[in-house]
Design a protein around this nucleic acid. Sequence first.
RNA 1: GGAGGCUUCGCCUAGUUCGGUCUAUGGCGCCGCACUGCUAAUGCGGUUUGGGUCUUAAAGCCCAUCCCGGGUUCGAAUCCCGGAGCCUCCGCCA
Length: 430
Amino acid sequence: MLDIDLIRKDRASVEAGLSKRLEPSEVSRALSAIADLDKQRRELIGEIDAERARRKEEARAFAAAKAAGQAIEAGARDAKAALAELEERLAQTQRDLDSAMSVLPNLPADDVVAGGKEANQVVQVYGEAPVIENLRDHVQLSSDLGLVDYERGVKLGGSGFWIYTGWGARLEFALVNWFIDRHFAAGYQFMLPPHLLLDSAGYAAGQFPKFYDEVFHIAGEEGERGRFLLPTSETAILGAYQNEIFETDSLPHRVYAYTPCYRSEKAGSHSDERGTVRGHQFNKVEIFQFTSQEDGEKTLEEMVDYAEGLVRDLGLHFRRSLLAAGDASASMRKTIDIEVWMPSTGKYKEISSVSWAGDYQARRAGIRYRVPGSKNNKFVHTLNGSALATSRLVPAILEQFQQPDGSVLVPEVLRDKVGTDRITKPSKRK
RNA sequence: GGAGGCUUCGCCUAGUUCGGUCUAUGGCGCCGCACUGCUAAUGCGGUUUGGGUCUUAAAGCCCAUCCCGGGUUCGAAUCCCGGAGCCUCCGCCA
């Protein structure tokens, strides 16, 4: 949610910013509709407040008269109906304003350019693409080495599900646990939230109504509140703090969470997204920060550097991209992707997306902080980043570290946790 | 699943019987000031949150806010209905 005050005071800059993401004519139309609704809303509030003040005064006079032992006529009933009518109009105006505001995306940061995927900029490339003999892709490697059982996964969950098996399961969880250790050491607070969230948390986090159809909903019993399976733990972290006020000295507040992510992914699959690259359930460790307004943007750099440190310590070749306005998610001011090299496709694939939302998410979720010396609490800035999505990291590790003999070297930092230095073909055994 | 108790300003708490200057008592914490050589102690004052209005800004003023949503009433923390959460007891259970 954007700041309505900014639209009032500096509509031109809002219009310019939003035009990086939307049709300029559409932006201008939406903003004038909002300006009208906002004006209407404030007029109604003025009228309602005045009427309430009048009635309060009347009730006081009544009480005073009664105390003095005088009888007094009861107030007019039609005044009450008139107030109710004004209140109904305000409620409607407020709903219209909210829905008009909630479809507006965030203002892209100054250095974020207009355009879609094609306008993304590669900022930096790290390491060299390894030269690989006997190149196999990750789907073949994981079948050969018995790391992922796609067929049995489909038997259990249907298309889009898989089972990690053997060394594959070890590798997957070694990664998750290694991240958990690293984030803890880096001062993030560990959170294991519920996977099933109330719809209200989805709205608070700003992911509904937009992504309502892209998550799995749980049909409850009659009269029960709706729930859904979380599509990312970002939803849970943000929702957990809705309507809270941070004390000044508790910022920045760093949190991380591990959960599987459940997504309906109704769109068709891509040829370069085979195997575990895109599915209905994948593991991700998410890092998140709540900061003051001053610290927001620089914290983005800090988090990207931090996430990259993880990929570098794994020994992978990757690059950093600054996303164009149209390719970043709508609630973000700026998003930086870390993309890992996939030898089989010759492309880089996103394994982490680190974003700075400014106060856009906080405004929706009602998350503020106290400002010393001021009575006005401000909205925090929120930042989130995957650190990292393991279902894409495992394929990258398999492909980049495969050996000519078909085995895969385990990244050094994971060897203790996986329990081997090298993953080889399992001996025949059912 | 059944029965009962409870939810008030950061925390604890008074107020709910019998509706009326109740945003609401007192304590703790916190902030400011005074006093003291420093600390401590003491005294005085301030301290829910959101919206509107006004202002360069601050202050002020107005409205809402006693778990949430409705209702009754001139008037609701207080009465009625619905919901959520917490606690206790009973039952059931991978």
